[in-house]
């Protein structure tokens, strides 16, 4: 699978569940959305080699 995570591309081999993927990448699941193709997927979804996945950070930093 190809991860588009704006600035980097990572090759990973599935099948793998979304939760396991985030754990592998040490990403807190509260801080991202996982998008496959053009829709969101939940943690229990199985991802495959041919999937195009975006892990989109949702935490913004402004303090005003």
């Amino acid at each position: 699978m190809v991860l588009r995570n704006p600035r980097r591309e990572v090759e990973l081999h599935g099948p793998m569940r979304v939760h396991a993927l985030l754990e592998r990448l040490e990403i807190n699941r509260e801080s991202v959305l996982v998008i496959r193709g053009d829709t969101l997927v939940t943690g229990d979804i199985q991802l495959h080699d041919e999937d195009e996945i975006e892990i989109r950070p949702v935490v913004s930093g402004g303090s005003s």
């Binding site: 807190n28 801080s31 950070p57 935490v59 913004s60 930093g61 402004g62 303090s63």
Partner: peptide, 18 residues
């Protein structure tokens, strides 16, 4: 992300809370 936000305290608090 706004380039001014990088490394500010607020982001640290959010990481801790998450």
């Amino acid at each position: 992300e706004c380039p001014m936000a990088a490394g500010n305290r607020h982001l640290g608090y959010k990481a801790a809370l998450n």
